[in-house]
Structures are given as C-alpha cells and as structure tokens.
C-alpha cells in the first residue's frame, strides 16, 4: 500500500528521498489543529472501546432518590432525572454514535468506490448508465426516505447502517469516478493492459489504490456527516431506541429538561460538537496534506 501510494501523481516528486507520502505526512504534522484533532479522536475511540471497564457506574444503574443532580464529586457530569450517571450514559452513547459513524461510512465507502471505479474505468455507455442512476438517486430526498424506512421497518441498528450508508455513497462514487477518469489515461495502465491483466484486476490493483488520497479525505469528511445524520434521527426519536442511547437521544433528553437541569443538555451537546470539530479539522488537514491543489472549498 505504502509503495503504491507514492505514485499518486498530484505533483512531480521534487527530489530523491522525499516521496509524496512523506511530503504528505510532513504537511500533516505541521498542521497542529489536525494533529490535536487526530489525538482527540484516537482517545475517544479508545474510551469507547474500553467503556464497559472504565465507566464509573453500570449503564442501567438508577438512583431515583437522587434524581437529577448537578455535577459533583460522585457524578462528574451530574445525573439525569432517573438518577443515572451522565458520564456513563455519554460514554455508552459515544460507543453507539461512533459505531454507526464508522460502519455506515464503511458501507458507503465500499459501494461508492466500487461503483465509481467501475463506471469510470469502463466508460462509455456503462459509465453513462451508472452515473445516470447516481444522478437519479441524488435527486431523491433521502432524509425523508430514511424516516420512511424507520417508520415502516422499525428502527434498528442494522437499518441505520444500511440506510445511512446507502445515502452517503453517491458523492463517493462521483469523486472516485472523476479520479479514475484521470488515472485511466496514465501510461502504467496502458502497460498493465499490454501485459494482459484482466479489467477487474486492473481496477482493483492499479486504479483504486492510486485514487486513494481523495478517498481517504472524503471518508474522513463522511464520518461526521453520518454521525450527524444518526444524531438527527435519534433526536427525533426515530433512530437509536431506549434503553440504548446515542448522542442524539441524550441531547433530546437534555432538551426536555434543559430549563431545570441544563447540564443534561450541555454535556452531550458538547461531546457531539467537539467530535464533529475534530473530524472536520482532521479532514481538512488531510485534504491539505494529500491534495495540496484542492482549495478550501
């Protein structure tokens, strides 16, 4: 992988010993905001993985006598109306939100890359038909359709993965197709054809790896929009169902009680926003590092 990425020909290699990958890493490491974001996200992922062991209370522990209490030494982020520890709830919510974010993005990534690469590589009539399908799907109002799906099939985690993944692959397909159209004209592809490799093998071994830069960038930027979509659904009560919680459903609980217990709104809202910041900064940083020619927008 490492070696192949070096060929991503966005600009000529300047001098010996300074590969494009190393240049990109160098640019990324100079971007402190992106680095801090990456660190924060790694920490968040670690915390999410370790939640069952590090959460201060059990997930379902209620303390009805205590009720909603403000942050204290026992409950760092306070408790909700049933006396459940907020920190614990947010930690478990982080697990759910991050999982939806990563899995649905992976679904989108898989479909989008295959679709875009195939369309771009085969070209001609196949490309035309495949991209017309993307155009048609693009025009569909997806937020509405996901709500429709959750109403009809009841909301489950699997449905959320599939539905959100099914929405987000479209842009990925367009980006990959654009990349592939450029790569297709490169000489090493001609060489691969001359060597008699099958089309599928060329797509998989030569085309997709060379389009990897923009794919990484767009993936990083897809995760926050997926997390946002899940939170949006859960906020409306159509996503993650109790007793499970995600950031969206915690915020929704917080809104109901914000007049008397503002910490119930503030902490989950803060967690979601900071995570979205980090993902966006990291995505921007990666774009500047991997694709210096792309402008900020």
């Amino acid at each position: 992988m490492q070696r192949i990425t070096e060929q991503t020909a966005t600009e000529p290699v300047l001098e010996e010993g300074s590969s494009l990958t190393r240049d990109a890493m160098h640019r990324l490491f100079k971007n402190r905001l992106a680095l801090v974001s990456a660190g924060f996200l790694l920490l968040l992922i670690l915390v999410a993985l370790l939640t069952p062991w590090i959460a201060p209370y059990a997930y379902q522990d209620q303390n009805l006598l205590l009720g909603a209490s403000s942050p204290s030494a026992q409950h760092w982020l306070g408790t909700d109306t049933l006396g459940r520890d907020q920190l614990t709830r947010i930690l478990y919510g982080t697990r759910v939100s991050l999982m939806v974010g990563f899995v649905a993005t992976a679904v989108a990534l898989g479909i989008g890359v295959l679709w875009g690469a195939t369309a771009g590589y085969l070209g001609g009539r196949v490309d035309n038909a495949m991209m017309r399908i993307v155009d048609v799907l693009y025009a569909l109002p997806f937020a509405i359709f996901i709500i429709l799906l959750t109403v009809i099939f009841g909301s489950s985690m699997l449905l959320l993965f599939l539905a959100i993944g099914a929405v987000e692959w479209l842009t990925m397909a367009r980006i990959v197709r654009g990349q592939v159209l450029t790569i297709k004209r490169q000489e090493y592809i001609e060489a691969a054809i001359a060597m008699g490799l099958s089309r599928w093998r060329i797509i998989r071994r030569h085309v997709i790896p060379n389009a990897v830069g923009p794919i990484i960038v767009y993936t990083t930027l897809t995760i926050p929009s997926v997390i946002l979509l899940e939170s949006f659904l859960s906020f409306l009560g159509l996503g993650i169902q109790p007793p499970q919680s995600s950031w969206g459903s915690l915020i929704s609980d917080g809104v109901e009680n914000m007049e008397n217990y503002p910490w119930m709104l503030i902490f989950p809202a803060l967690t979601l926003s900071v995570t979205l910041f980090a993902l966006n900064f990291l995505g921007d940083g990666l774009r500047d590092a991997l694709d210096p020619r792309a402008s900020k927008d």
Binding site: S231, F232, L265, L276, N280
Partner: peptide, 26 residues
C-alpha cells in the same frame, strides 16, 4: 469569519436551537 463558519457547521440545529432557547429565551 471562517472559524465562525466552522462552528456553524459543527453545531447542528438540534444543538444550536436548544442552546439559543436556553440563553435568549430562558
């Protein structure tokens, strides 16, 4: 302005709305 825009993008309406309500309304 671009930092402010980043804040605007990262604060979804279901976070911003309640916060505005809390501050300016309550």
């Amino acid at each position: 302005p671009m930092s402010a825009a980043m804040v605007g993008i990262c604060l979804p309406s279901f976070v911003l709305g309640p916060i505005l309500m809390l501050i300016f309304g309550i």
